[in-house]
Amino acid sequence: MTKVKYVRVSTTEQNTGRQETNSKEFSKVYIDKVSGSVKFSERKEASKLILDIESGIISEIHINSIDRLGRSIIDILTMIEFFNEKSVKVFVENIGMFSLIDNKPNPSFKMIVSVLGNVAEMERNNMLERQKQGIELAKAKGIYKGRLYGTRMNDDEVLIKYKAVVKELKNGESLRRAAKIGGCSLGTAQKIQRILQEKEAA
């Protein structure tokens, strides 16, 4: 039985160093560079972690913060419940608590996680609302050029529309360079990168 760590950052350009500061303590560190909106079970490294749990070789998982498991409170609690069922302890470093005590669910942990998860979800929704208001204001001023999110384009249509971005990313260029060359926002470049990664993994 082993102790492992799970690390997630949203983009390939983000540094995982802060979350890996104590990595030497663990038998293995799983690192995903993917948006928190992607369900835990659908992430490349998280899927490997789940398989290792199913194999019974993991007894303890450490994460930097609870939002590494998911963006919504439902996704977070679903994963915590899965870990509990498998008798795998989760330790959240920024609150210093274990999900299980003597192999039983820690009620204080669940309460704090629920609060933190709800706060994170509320902050995300507020950010999206502010973003929406900003777009409406830009439209009213006649300076809005359109954006990828909220459109009805499917993945293939997105890749066709942003061929230059696709080319830059496939050549190993940074997201910022790809966005600049392709004439789109960094967020759009990140979306395109995710599509490419999903197609590659399929």
Score class of each variant (00 low, 15 high):
residue 27 S to W: 08
residue 50 I to K: 09
residue 36 G to A: 13
residue 133 Q to C: 02
residue 201 A to S: 08
residue 115 V to E: 04
residue 130 R to W: 02
residue 134 G to E: 12
residue 200 E to K: 04
residue 27 S to K: 10
residue 202 A to W: 05
residue 124 R to I: 14
residue 21 T to H: 02
residue 43 R to H: 12
residue 72 S to A: 02
residue 119 V to N: 02
residue 199 K to F: 03
residue 61 I to Q: 06
residue 40 F to I: 07
residue 119 V to D: 07
residue 105 P to D: 01
residue 82 F to Y: 14
residue 24 K to Y: 08
residue 111 M to T: 15
residue 36 G to P: 01
residue 149 Y to L: 09
residue 102 D to T: 13
residue 11 T to G: 09
residue 19 Q to M: 13
residue 91 F to Q: 04
residue 16 T to Q: 08
residue 132 K to C: 01
residue 178 A to N: 06
residue 200 E to A: 14
residue 135 I to S: 14
residue 33 K to A: 05
residue 24 K to T: 06
residue 153 M to T: 00
residue 112 I to K: 05
residue 18 R to W: 02
residue 187 G to K: 09
residue 193 Q to L: 15
residue 116 L to M: 13
residue 26 F to C: 11
residue 102 D to Q: 08
residue 148 L to C: 05
residue 83 F to T: 00
residue 50 I to V: 10
residue 161 K to I: 00
residue 133 Q to F: 06
residue 29 V to I: 09
residue 142 G to V: 06
residue 165 V to A: 15
residue 171 N to I: 14
residue 56 G to A: 14
residue 86 K to C: 08
residue 154 N to G: 08
residue 197 Q to M: 04
residue 114 S to A: 02
residue 29 V to R: 11
residue 193 Q to K: 07
residue 120 A to C: 01
residue 122 M to A: 03
residue 93 E to K: 05
residue 129 E to I: 08
residue 74 I to N: 11
residue 2 T to C: 13
residue 173 E to Q: 14
residue 64 N to P: 01
residue 46 A to F: 09
residue 202 A to Q: 12
residue 139 K to Y: 04
residue 8 R to V: 13
residue 12 T to H: 00
residue 196 L to F: 13
residue 144 Y to C: 14
residue 172 G to E: 14
residue 55 S to I: 03
residue 101 I to L: 09
residue 15 N to S: 15
residue 40 F to H: 06
residue 154 N to D: 08
residue 92 V to S: 08
residue 197 Q to S: 10
residue 1 M to T: 11
residue 182 G to A: 04
residue 40 F to P: 00
residue 141 K to V: 03
residue 15 N to K: 10
residue 174 S to N: 08
residue 36 G to K: 01
residue 170 K to F: 00
residue 126 N to I: 09
residue 133 Q to H: 12
residue 175 L to S: 06
residue 144 Y to N: 10
residue 17 G to K: 00
residue 33 K to M: 15
residue 189 A to C: 06
residue 41 S to R: 11
residue 119 V to H: 07
residue 59 S to I: 00
residue 33 K to S: 10
residue 79 M to Q: 12
residue 100 L to Y: 14
residue 101 I to W: 08
residue 122 M to T: 15
residue 140 A to C: 04
residue 19 Q to N: 11
residue 26 F to G: 00
residue 194 R to W: 12
residue 7 V to R: 09
residue 38 V to A: 03
residue 191 K to V: 01
residue 42 E to Y: 13
residue 100 L to A: 12
residue 69 L to K: 06
residue 54 E to K: 10
residue 6 Y to P: 03
residue 13 E to W: 05
residue 107 P to G: 05
residue 88 V to S: 04
residue 42 E to I: 03
residue 165 V to M: 07
residue 22 N to A: 11
residue 50 I to F: 11
residue 85 E to R: 15
residue 38 V to T: 15
residue 56 G to W: 13
residue 88 V to E: 13
residue 120 A to Y: 01
residue 105 P to T: 03
residue 60 E to R: 08
residue 85 E to W: 07
residue 185 S to N: 15
residue 200 E to Q: 11
residue 163 K to I: 01
residue 184 C to Q: 06
residue 118 N to M: 08
residue 97 M to W: 11
residue 3 K to G: 15
residue 180 K to L: 05
residue 88 V to N: 12
residue 83 F to A: 02
residue 173 E to P: 10
residue 176 R to Y: 08
residue 15 N to P: 14
residue 85 E to L: 07
residue 106 N to C: 12
residue 181 I to V: 15
residue 122 M to Q: 09
residue 191 K to I: 00
residue 114 S to R: 06
residue 80 I to L: 13
